[in-house]
């Protein structure tokens, strides 16, 4: 199963870090997310971006997770030579992840 089957996501920047939400479609799907999506799995999946650190926060009250990928935006919005300078499309890359 892929994350897109369980949740939706929006991502953006803060400095050189990419900040993503992962919001479950319902509470049952949230429980699956919490059980299956580990920090280690995120570290492995996002390794092509070479993050210096990854944070994963759990918000039971909102049935949502918060993920922060550190130092993955090529220097940050005004400093990046990537096409997606702010990591706005990385939500889609997250949702393609298999768990």
């Amino acid at each position: 199963m892929r994350l897109i089957d369980l949740a939706f996501s929006r991502s953006s920047d803060k400095g050189n870090h990419c900040d993503l939400s992962l919001i479950a479609y319902d509470e049952e799907k949230y429980r699956v997310l919490v059980e299956k999506l580990t920090k280690q799995a995120l570290i492995d999946y996002f390794s092509p971006l070479g993050p210096s650190r990854i944070d994963l926060f759990r918000l039971d009250n909102l049935s949502a997770l918060k993920i922060v990928l550190y130092d993955v935006l090529d220097g940050g919005a005004a400093n990046s030579i990537k096409a997606d300078t702010q990591g706005k499309s990385l939500s889609g890359a997250l949702l393609r992840m298999e768990i």
Partner: peptide, 16 residues
């Protein structure tokens, strides 16, 4: 509920 949650969680890094 979902449009509001999505913005609530936007760019906040540590939600705690």
């Amino acid at each position: 509920e979902f449009t509001v949650k999505e913005q609530l969680l936007y760019e906040i890094h540590n939600p705690f």
